[in-house]
């Protein structure tokens, strides 16, 4: 399996064997078990369980809110990455470090504090609720939580690309007479776009599976503010394992599909490289 002529280092058999064993036991076998449970179920039966009216409403909310949240992050994440890489301002290092906060903060805590902020008595809710904007216990709350969860992805994907962006290219555009806006629209924008879309897809994929933060802030009303992962939990509590698995499999396929899309995007992003 490994070519000895090119490597004299020891330990390949041991580490590889352990890696495969552990991966198999902790991840692969359990996941395989999930699919195996569906073996006895006909496709029609699976489809019926995966597409009940309540499930479809849940998918619609999950994907819709994830899409909106990822879009918000694509727009503002690009501005944040640009500002952090290009400009100097007081507190820059603090904000840069803060961007990773959603990665580090347990999702339950995120959900708790966000629902408190947007509730009628919260710091933001007391201004927003009188305006008719209910951030907590509605589907808008789902968008807020998912925006928080996905915030680092676009920023952190875009930052290294912006840092390594060849400054000479912008200068070349300037020597040819292009102003800043023109340079951004015809050169910087098109170059960054694939990376922004990659960040978007990562945030989107993360949002689809999110559970902890959302159940705190969404009202979790069926057909209205109930996300797909929550429906899995509800099916389990009803001892309807197959129903839970059906919805889980739909989510898994979408996640894997997104993984493929992200890989293709990364290849597309590097199409102008050697």
């Amino acid at each position: 399996m490994v070519d000895r002529r090119f490597n004299v280092l020891p330990g390949f058999g041991l580490t590889m064997g352990y890696t495969l064993l552990y991966l198999g036991l902790i991840v692969l076998l359990p996941v395989a078990g999930l699919f195996l449970r569906l073996a006895g179920v006909s496709f029609e039966e699976f489809w019926r369980m995966a597409t009940t009216e309540r499930a479809v409403a849940a998918y619609r909310l999950t994907f819709g809110a994830s899409f909106v949240a990822a879009t918000i992050n694509a727009v503002f994440g690009t501005v944040v990455a640009w500002v952090l890489v290009r400009y100097h301002f007081p507190g820059k290092r603090f904000f840069d470090a803060l961007v990773d906060f959603p990665f580090a903060l347990p999702t339950a805590v995120a959900g708790l504090t966000l629902s408190n902020l947007y509730a009628e008595t919260g710091w933001l809710g007391r201004f927003l609720v009188p305006l008719g904007i209910h951030g907590a216990f509605t589907s808008l709350g789902v968008v807020i939580a998912l925006t928080f969860i996905g915030l680092p992805f676009v920023v952190r994907t875009l930052q290294p690309v912006l840092e390594h962006f060849d400054h000479e290219v912008e200068e070349a555009a300037a020597t040819l007479g292009a102003g800043r806006l023109r340079t951004f629209v015809s050169i910087i924008g098109p170059t960054l776009l694939p990376t922004i879309i990659t960040g978007f897809a990562l945030a989107f994929a993360r949002a689809i599976g999110e559970y902890g933060s959302v159940i705190f802030i969404a009202g979790n009303k069926p057909y209205e503010s109930e996300i797909a992962p929550l429906l899995i939990v509800i099916r389990l509590e009803e001892y309807d394992y197959t129903g839970a698995i059906a919805i889980a499999v739909v989510l898994l396929f979408i996640s894997f599909g997104l993984l493929v899309v992200i890989n293709l995007l990364e290849r597309w992003a590097s199409r102008y490289e050697n």
Binding site: D166, E168, V169, E171, A172, A173, A174, T175, L176, G177, A178, G179, S186, I187, P190, T191, Y272, E273
Partner: peptide
């Protein structure tokens, strides 16, 4: 710099990667 009407060739050429040769030359 936009108004000076100079031609500048950068060390690593700084070609616009997202544009064809034709569009690069036509940019100015």
């Amino acid at each position: 710099v936009q108004q000076r009407n100079i031609g500048f060739v950068f060390q690593n050429y700084a070609l616009f990667k997202n544009m064809s040769v034709f569009k690069n030359v036509a940019f100015g």
